[in-house]
Amino acid sequence: MKRILAFALSMAACAAFAQMTPLGLWRNVDDKTGEAKAEIRIVDQGGKLSGRIEKTLTKNGKPTCEECKDERKDQPIVGLEIIRNAQKSEGQAVWEHGKILDPENGKEYTLRLAPIDGGQKLQVRGYIGPFFRTQTWVRVQ
């Protein structure tokens, strides 16, 4: 009985730890209006994270990234890669040094991702110099 209990506890701990990662499907929420805007899937590509818009949730959004400056210019919003090259910081549950694109204005920001609330939420922070903006994304179950 003790072995079964120990095994169950260790599996629960592993499941909780596995959720303390940005990998998965997230719903971003507008930090000004509180409205859900899109669902973004974050995946690992050889130790670096990438994220693409999988679904838009607003009806009045632009269908393409008109403001983008690079190869993403005029590409469809659905499928657009908005997170690139985030890497896990040593010894921390934080991913940094990547870039995040705001498709509404075409600007790219230095990125910091930190799972919070047991991995059910993701703190997404974009920096330009000393200035930053933070959003809290919610994991889609």
Rank of each mutant, 00 (worst) to 15 (best):
V124A: 01
G34V: 10
L57R: 07
I4V: 12
W26Q: 10
A36K: 05
A114N: 13
V43S: 06
L25A: 05
T110A: 08
Q141P: 15
E81R: 11
K32H: 09
Q75C: 03
R27Q: 14
C14P: 13
G61N: 10
D30N: 13
N28T: 14
Q75S: 09
K73R: 09
E81Y: 02
L111K: 05
Q87S: 12
A86T: 03
G51Q: 05
A114V: 14
G91I: 08
R52G: 01
Q19K: 13
I40Y: 01
K2M: 04
L80E: 14
D74G: 00
A18P: 13
T134F: 00
M1G: 14
R41P: 03
R3D: 15
E108C: 02
P115F: 00
D31E: 15
K99C: 04
T21H: 03
G118R: 03
E71A: 06
G79Q: 07
A86G: 05
P115L: 02
A8L: 14
M20R: 11
T21E: 13
Q19Y: 03
L101S: 01
G91R: 08
M11A: 09
A16H: 10
K55Y: 02
K121E: 13
P130L: 11
E39Y: 01
T33I: 08
R72N: 06
A8H: 09
R41M: 07
A18R: 07
V78P: 07
W137E: 12
E90C: 04
G46E: 12
G34Y: 04
L23I: 14
R125F: 00
I128T: 11
T56F: 00
R84N: 10
L23P: 11
I40D: 07
A38E: 11
F7N: 15
T64Q: 05
T33L: 04
L5T: 15
